[in-house]
């Protein structure tokens, strides 16, 4: 049995909906009779076609101006919920998604279920599945609160498939007040150059850990190999904590989930923290000096060796081919 109304908090980058948003819409179609989206951004008309194609009949849209997006989203959704009473609102476990679900949960006094990897509906019961302890244990949690239920889902949990409908109708939302929270003002945006695909969308992900030895080795080992394989570069929590690379590159429980065709772990021992973010990859290759490292327990191809010796040879061989 389906829910009567499921909402998706939609996010976009440069006028294009995030794949995480399209994944949520695809899931919403499966579990909801009516699917609608809430979008906070300047370019609602630009995203409405694609959101409609993936299942949203309507897009409630608010323009945040310079205010932090998630803050505006929470205030706008709180107002809309009163009028439209959705059963379930799905958010991506993203930066703005977490801001939005967090503030909304306080406004509505509803619990949140986060880090979801599955959503199940049975009658009025909505259950969110998560993986804990490095992905070794699967836990289902069922909402026992009033509706709407609020859930944040990790990107890559569902496939995104278009439903074939036309553009969503855009309904402007106004007349809400975020209070002092709206003071959080974006003054400047810095886009850092990125060669190749996004971490979550890449076919190949090459990640580095402590075993690469020093921050200056990240570029010639990890990034170079990723570039040659037209992939993206990631990192273990250890080297993010050490300040070698930014948080956006972190793969793991606190960080991103990736499911590429090939995941290459360089100098990563395989803490449970890391494994939960990459064990869904189709193929895993690991290079690590320590033959006892836990990463080898899930690697399809494990090389017990020094990354500083093995990786330059791979790079050389790949360059010789091109």
């Amino acid at each position: 049995m389906a829910l009567s109304k499921v909402w998706v908090y939609a996010e976009a980058e440069g006028g294009t909906p995030l794949s995480a948003t399209l994944e949520l819409l695809t899931k919403a179609r499966e579990i909801g009779d009516t699917v609608e989206a809430v979008f906070v951004g300047a370019d609602a008309d630009a995203v409405a076609a694609k959101l409609g194609e993936y299942g949203a009949a309507k897009v409630y849209a608010a323009d945040p101006g310079q205010t932090l997006t998630g803050v505006v989203a929470a205030a706008a959704i709180a107002k809309l919920v009163e009028e439209h009473q959705p059963d379930l609102i799905l958010f991506a476990q993203s930066y703005d998604g977490r801001d939005a679900i967090a503030r909304l949960s306080v406004k509505l006094d509803r619990p949140v279920l986060t880090n979801g990897m599955s959503v199940g509906v049975e009658g009025d019961n909505v259950t969110v599945g998560t993986a804990i302890f490095g992905g070794n244990l699967l836990v289902d949690t069922t909402f026992r609160s009033e509706k709407p239920y609020l859930a944040a889902i990790r990107p890559k949990s569902f496939a995104a498939e278009p439903g074939g409908a036309g553009a969503a109708e855009v309904v402007k939302v106004e007349g809400f007040d975020a209070g002092r929270a709206a003071e959080a003002t974006v003054r400047d945006r810095h886009v850092e150059e990125r060669e190749g695909p996004k971490l979550e969308d890449a076919t190949v992900v090459v990640s580095g850990g402590r075993g690469i030895g020093a921050p200056e080795n990240y570029e010639p080992l990890v990034e170079e190999l990723a570039k040659l394989l037209k992939g993206a570069s990631g990192a273990s929590r250890a080297i993010v904590d050490a300040g070698w690379v930014p948080y956006a590159k972190q793969v793991g429980q606190t960080g991103k989930t990736v499911k590429p065709r090939v995941y290459i772990a360089l100098g990563i021992s395989g803490a449970t923290q890391h494994m939960v973010g990459m064990k869904g990859s189709d193929n895993i290759i690991a290079v690590n000096k320590d033959g006892e490292a836990p990463i080898f327990s899930i690697a399809d191809l494990g090389i017990v060796g020094d990354v500083h010796k093995v990786v330059p040879k791979i790079i050389e061989a790949l360059k010789a081919r091109s």
Binding site: R110, P111, L113, T127, A131, G135, N136, L137, L138, V139, D140, T141, T142, F143, R144, S145, K279, G291, F296, S297, I298, A299, D300, L301, G302, I303, V304
Partner: peptide, 18 residues
């Protein structure tokens, strides 16, 4: 206001060649 309704081990991923 939530209930843990199921806990089960995840299917293990097999190690390949080392």
């Amino acid at each position: 206001r939530q209930e843990i309704t199921k806990v089960e081990p995840a299917p293990a991923r097999q190690a390949g060649e080392k």
